[in-house]
């Protein structure tokens, strides 16, 4: 009995020594976070759906079935999720729309985090008047009502995937800038930063080699949650008609397209709506768990 207990204890210790590295420790805590795991499974499901789905169901999302008989078909063997108002396969459009939505979500969340990090680093590290100017600019950006300006911007920039990403980044970097600035203000008082200055390291080196890596944990969490936000944003822009343009699908413009038929074919609104809902919820759950795993004391 006693030997077994010792054996079990040894096993426990072995487990904990595996978790000794930082990444291992975070991963271990993450797997214990129930909500994060729910989020992770939702995201894995969505990713499989979007990337593996088209390999199994090889329908063209833009092919229209000729004749009135092809429109608004309910689910059938030929079209598992039916067809839409142009007679296009909804399942295939869900796959390719999802790819575009996720692509926009990832790229714009990562870019806006990087822009925010850059602004926050410079403002926090240099302080003084550069801090003042950058932070007042951030405040000004935050106070701009987004949607009216968005419509104006869309008419100037034109419509398309990269334009949407640009718009989301332009209006999305401010919270990260504030976050990073706050972190840098406390990090730059650390002795290792002073040690770097004593070595003769340049401001650039201190910012990118010493300060930035120490904000990375927080930025990863913020990006994860930001992806969900960016997907909603893309959907809103596309819903207003300024986003991804037909015939290309995105979950947002599928919603927009479907609103005219909400009473006749509610399923056309339910599928993309549900997909957006699941993706955003998944990213939020996962991001929440990641935050708890990286630093339980962190306030974000």
């Amino acid at each position: 009995m006693a030997e077994k207990a010792i054996e079990a204890k040894k096993k426990g210790q072995k487990k904990s020594s595996e978790d000794y590295t930082y990444v291992g420790m975070v991963f271990h805590r993450l797997t214990r976070h129930k909500l994060a795991m729910v989020g992770a499974f939702m995201l894995i499901f969505i990713l499989l759906f979007v990337f593996v789905g088209p390999l199994i169901w090889r329908a063209n999302p833009n092919t229209q079935i000729e004749g009135l008989g092809g429109l608004f078909n309910p689910a059938s063997r030929a079209h598992p999720l039916g067809t839409d108002d142009y007679g296009r396969d909804v399942l295939a459009r869900m796959f390719f729309g999802g790819r575009i939505s996720l692509f926009i979500g990832f790229i714009s969340a990562i870019s806006s985090t990087l822009v925010g990090a850059l602004v926050g680093l410079v403002a926090g590290y240099y302080g003084g008047w550069s801090d003042n100017i950058l932070m007042r600019f951030t405040d000004a950006m935050l106070s701009i009502p987004t949607f009216p300006l968005l419509i104006a911007l869309a008419s100037v920039l034109g419509k398309g995937v990269w334009q949407i990403i640009l718009v989301i980044v332009v209006f999305g970097w401010m919270t990260d800038a504030r976050l990073v600035r706050g972190l840098v203000l406390s990090l730059k008082e650390q002795e290792y930063v002073e040690a770097a200055r004593a070595i003769g390291a340049s401001a650039n080196r201190i910012m990118w080699r010493h300060l930035f890596p120490n904000t990375l944990a927080v930025l990863i969490v913020s990006t994860t949650i930001g992806i969900g936000g960016a997907i909603i944003y893309e959907a809103s822009i596309s819903f207003l008609g300024f986003g991804v343009q037909a015939p290309f699908a995105s979950w947002g413009n599928m919603l927009q397209n479907a609103q005219q038929f909400i009473w006749n074919s509610p399923r056309l609104i339910i599928y993309p709506g549900l997909a957006i809902f699941m993706t955003v919820l998944g990213f939020n759950f996962f991001g929440d768990g990641l935050r708890d795993a990286i630093d339980p004391k962190l306030k974000l």
Partner: peptide
């Protein structure tokens, strides 16, 4: 050069020890 009091605060937690020691050589 300077050596600090706090053995916890004076080393960058996100840098391998070899890189920390090598940094002065890189800088110069």
């Amino acid at each position: 050069q300077i050596m600090f009091q706090d053995p916890y605060g004076s080393l960058n937690p996100r840098m391998p020890v070899g890189d920390i020691i090598q940094e002065p050589l890189d800088v110069h």
